[in-house]
Every structure is written in C-alpha cells, then in structure tokens.
Design a protein around this nucleic acid. Structure first.
Length: 567
RNA sequence: GGUCCCGUGGCUUAGCCAGGAUAUAGCAUCGGGCUUCUAACCCGAGGGCCAAGGGUUCAAAUCCCUUCGGGAUCGCCA
C-alpha cells in the first residue's frame, strides 16, 4: 500500500510543481520521523527559482490539489521540507487489502524468471558457519523475490570435478571411510587426513593430477570414484540445508557441462572473438579493456579446463533459461566474478548479478575445511536447539515434550537465521559462541513470539466468542495510536519487499520484521481486544489482529523462519 | 606493493550508492510495569567529537583525497 501512496505523492507533487512552472522529476522522497513521507524537492528548486527553499516548499504545498479518496492526508511545509501524512483512506484500504489478499499482500508486483544460485560449497565436507551465511542470504533473497512476484528457480552448483574432489576420491583409497558418521562429516575427516598426507609427501600430488586428467577425459572408473565422494558429501549437506529451511530446486553438476560439450563450446566462442592468447601452453583471455590487468586462464597447459571455464559454460546455460541470473558468492569471488561477467559480456551473453558477502571467521583466524579449522553448521544448530529447549522448558514447563522439542527447533533455527540475515552482507564477522547462543536479544524469537501472541488471541476469540474471520468489520473504528502505527507498518511491507528485491538486500526485511513485531507488541500491550466493551470495536480489533498475524506470517516466511502458533 | 569491502555509544548494528530537520535499533547498565488476550513483553534514563586528518558544499556519518586498523584478492586452486 505504501508503494501506491508513494505513487500518489509523486503525481500530486508533479502536478503542483508543474503548475508553478518548475522543471523537476525527482521529488527526493524520503522516510521521515515528522510525517509518513517527506520531500526535499524545495532544496533543488531553490536555485532555479531564485527563492529560499522555505518559500518554495510553502508555494508547492499551496498548489497541491488532492483527488477524492486520496491516500494523502495532511500536507505541510516545515521549513524547506514538505511533510506528507497519509489519509484515513490509506489506513482503511490497508486493512481491507490485507483481509482480501491474505498471504499475497505486499507482493506480486514483479514478473519474470530468475535463476538464483547460492551456497554451492565444495562437496569436501559439511557446511560450516561461513557457508550458511551464503545459504541464508541466498534463501532469503529467493523468498523475497518470490513474494515480489518473480518465478525463481534455485540452484546449488555442485563442483564434482575440482582438485579438491580429486583429493577426496583419492582419500577413499588411503583411509577408512566412517559409515557411522553423517556422510559430509565423514568426508571431511578423510579429506583433512589426505591433505595432511599430501603435505608431508608432495610426490603423491602426481596421483591427484592424474585423477584430474582422467576425469576430464571421461575415464569411467575415475568419474565413478568422484561421484561416490560427491554424493556422500552432498547428501549430508542437503540434510543440513533442509534443517535450516533452505531448499534448492536443482543441483547441476560441473561435470555435466564438460560432457555436454558446453565447456569446449564456450572456449571456442571466446577464441572466435580474438581475445585469447597462448601463454606457456595455457589459454588465456585478455580483459584489459574491462579493467583487468591480468589475463584470465581458461585452459591449463595440459589441456584441462578450470573452475572458471566450467563456470562460464554454466552461466551461458543459465542465461538461456532466465531473465535474470543472480549468484550469491563469498568475498573470495570478487575478482573472479568480475572476470566472469566481463568474459560473458565480451561474447554477448547475459551477465549474472552478483551478491557478495564478506567472510565469517573464527576468533583464532579464518576457517578452512582442508585444515579442519571450522565450526560446522550442524554443531551450531545442535547447540542452538539445545539452548532453545532450555528456554522453552523454563517458560512452559507444563507442556508436552513433543511441543517443547518442536518449539525449540523452530525458535533455534529462527534465531540463527535472523542473526545472520540482519547484518549487511558487506560486513565481515567473527563467529562467537556466546553471542550465537544468546536468546535475550530482540531477534528471530521476538518476531515469532508476536506471531504466537496474535494466534493465541484469535484462538481464544474462536473458543470464547465463536469468532470467525469472515465477519464484516468497520476498519474506521481502529483509531488508537498503536492501531494506526501497526496498520501503517503493515502497509509498508510492499515497499520493503520492493527495495530488498531491487537492491538484493535481504537484511532490510529482517529489520522490518522486527519493527512490525514491535508495533504489534505495543498494540497488544495497550489495546484490549477480546475484552473490548463494544462488539463492533472488538470485531474490528480482531480483524486487525488477524491482519497482523497474516503479515507477520509473511514476514517470517520471507525470512525463512517458522511461525509457531504457540511458544 | 596493487585492487576491492568494512571501521558508527562498553559490545553488535541501521542510515552511506541517489548529501539536508534533534544519527537507528538491539544487547549490556540503571529505574518502572504481570488481579487484565503467554512478561521470549511493554515504558523510561544514561551513554556517540559517526576510526583520524584534510577537501568539496549554503549543508557531510553520507561525496573526494591521505593516514591508520580489520577482512578479501592479485593467471594454469576453487
């Protein structure tokens, strides 16, 4: 609803400014503490009109004419600012809008097919707390984009033929694989051992090189040994992702692009535009005109392809299947993703939009699967759920064990996801157990609690008052400050979705969800619902609670947090 | 050494790209609130020369330059 409000503000200002014979398109609208929206346009027009911004603001306000039933209410010039408040109709339409649209409220205004790749961690061990930043940012973006109206397909690109996988497959021939363990963890065990062995005995590296050549040339037995290693790791990774409410639609494998001929094809395409050169037997691409000093190697001197080459083929393939391609990648991919985009651009292919997130490190330094220096996502989830269980047990000791376990799971995952997504991706972070397990913060569980409270009111109303949601209500009876604040907060859901979908910034939705929960809690504290004296007021408030439940559920769902009806 | 990202109260953090009204929240600290829809809640207080220095501008947390601190990266790894 806020998007529509903004549109009306723009057109009202445009007309007013036009009637004063000023030329300007951008009204510099911004959120304000003094109104629902404010325009700074008077600053810009000051030089043009040779008048003070203050006078211009006043003039514009006087020139504004509002149509019947406008979403704009009071319009005031305060110094150079034009402060605009929404009308009663805005409030009423928001309530009816939510009641009519339900879960679709605040979205559905975009269209097109998006292919989004995220996580794509190498299958040489379990996901660690750094990888899940990728998964959570990626999955939240998927949910935001879907709500905005896009058709989104999510992919996990499986590196099943890199050097690291050659090492894992080789490790199977050197060490015992512990089948009693979760498979991705068991893979990490032998991978770490193999790396240590290669470190001690560099002559064995030739065996890895040999495997790399064999797999690329299509040797059945080697391919099979890679597949075994990869599928063990991937099955464990999938389990972890599922536990975090993260789902991928497909898992394309790198090797498939070799086998389909896509890799050789893309190499030929690059050769054809005359950008390639031979550098000591390796094939390199010159991207100097794109601002890259150094050339990009796309083929080793032994003729095998590299990650980059396969990634080029993968992106070419993705570009043929979607209107937009989005990749969520770690900070280590900044350079290479720039080169990837430049190369695709040079052969006239669709470029991906890249979302970069900075690294999560440990207090003692950076994480490394190879060296066994990492905290696995499974460990984190295990501990957080245990912590959450204690919190539930403390608050609802009388409830059944199954209830406590279920709530602990929902709340635990919620806390983890929220903590990660609420921070801007461009900040590097240091993982800290104490903070990760702290439930006192106003985070995921805070939002889930608001939702549970809303559910509880409605459940009680159903039991005690035989309330049903279809009842006709009068939204104009909602006049308390906290009611209006809550409604306005819900109204702005669409604009938050719009902004986070456009800028690919999931953390905006995290902040919004928290504010929405806060608004609901304030309403809950100050306005009686079930015990409201007058029946029509009670009905309107129940409808409002139901609206809040709807929007809270959407916000939680967009963040990938579970919505518990009781906790 | 080159390039990119980050540096906001004790801790975590929004705002920065598109400069303007007293800089946003949370945690922690201190004070108040459960006979009333679950207190995982609500209300209030203190706490910031927005890393430092310079510049642009009527106006800078926001743009530019320099320095410092942290992270990432710099062809045949991924």
């Amino acid at each position: 609803m806020f998007l529509e409000f903004k549109k009306q503000v723009n057109s009202a200002l445009k007309k007013a400014v036009g009637s004063l014979n000023f030329e300007i398109d951008d009204f510099e609208l911004e959120a304000s503490q003094h109104a629902d929206i404010a325009s700074k346009v008077a600053f810009r027009l000051a030089s043009q009109a040779k008048k003070s911004p203050k006078d211009i603001a006043q003039q514009i306000v006087e020139a504004i004419e509002l149509p019947e039933d406008s979403l704009l209410g009071e319009i005031k010039a305060v110094g150079p600012y034009i402060n605009i408040t929404s009308s009663r109709s805005y409030i009423d339409k928001t309530v009816t809008g939510i009641r009519e649209e339900g879960n679709a409220f605040g979205g559905g205004f975009c269209e097109g097919k998006i292919l989004l790749e995220h996580t794509s961690a190498n299958p040489n061990g379990p996901l660690h707390v750094g990888h899940i930043r990728n998964s959570i940012i990626g999955d939240t973006l998927v949910r935001i984009l879907k709500h905005a109206g896009y058709d989104v397909e999510t992919q996990y690109y499986v590196n099943d033929m890199g050097r690291q996988i050659a090492i894992v497959s080789w490790a199977f021939t050197q060490f015992e694989f512990d089948v009693s363990k979760k498979p991705d963890h068991a893979i990490a065990d032998i991978y770490i051992k193999a790396n240590a062995l290669l470190n001690d005995d560099p002559e064995k590296i030739a065996e890895i090189d040999k495997r790399m050549q064999l797999v690329e040339s299509g040797d059945e037995e080697t391919i099979e040994s890679f597949d075994v290693a990869v599928s063990h790791a991937v099955s464990g990774i999938k389990e972890t992702l599922m536990r975090m409410n993260v789902k991928h639609d497909s898992f394309p494998h790198e090797s498939s692009f070799i086998r389909s001929g896509a890799v050789s094809r893309v190499v030929e395409e690059i050769k054809a535009i005359g950008r390639t050169a031979d550098d000591k037997g390796a094939l390199v691409v010159d991207l100097g005109d794109y601002g890259f000093e150094k050339t990009l190697v796309i083929q080793r001197s032994d003729g095998t392809s590299l990650y980059t080459t396969r990634d080029l083929a993968y992106h070419e393939w993705k570009g043929e299947r979607a209107d937009r391609i989005i990749d969520v990648l770690g900070a280590d991919h900044k350079l290479i993703s720039g080169q990837l985009k430049a190369t695709l651009n040079s052969i006239g292919k669709k470029e991906p939009e890249i979302v970069i997130f900075e690294f999560v490190s440990l207090p003692e330094g950076s994480m490394s699967t190879r060296r066994g220096k990492f905290i696995s996502a499974d460990d984190l989830l295990e501990q957080i759920e245990e912590q959450a269980y204690m919190e539930v047990d403390k608050r609802r000791p009388e409830m059944a064990e199954g209830f406590k376990r279920e709530v602990a799971r929902t709340v635990g995952i919620g806390a983890v996801r929220y903590d990660i997504v609420k921070v801007s991706p461009e900040k590097s972070t240091v993982f800290n157990w104490k903070e990760a397990l702290d439930f006192e913060k106003q985070g995921g569980p805070f939002i889930q609690y608001s939702y549970a409270r809303a559910c509880n009111i409605l459940r009680k109303a159903g039991e005690e008052l035989s309330w049903i949601s279809a009842q006709d209500i009068d939204p104009s009876l909602l006049v308390e400050d906290t009611e209006i604040d809550l409604i306005k907060k819900m109204a702005s859901f669409d604009s938050v979705i719009d902004i986070s979908a456009r800028e690919l910034k999931p953390h905006a939705i995290a902040i919004y969800a928290r504010e929405l929960a806060e608004s609901f809690n304030q309403f809950y504290r100050f306005v009686p619902v079930i015990s409201a004296e007058e029946e029509d007021i009670r009905a309107s408030r129940l409808a409002l609670v139901e609206c809040a439940r709807t929007v809270l559920a959407s916000a939680l769902n967009t963040l990938g947090l579970g919505a518990p009806e009781s906790m």
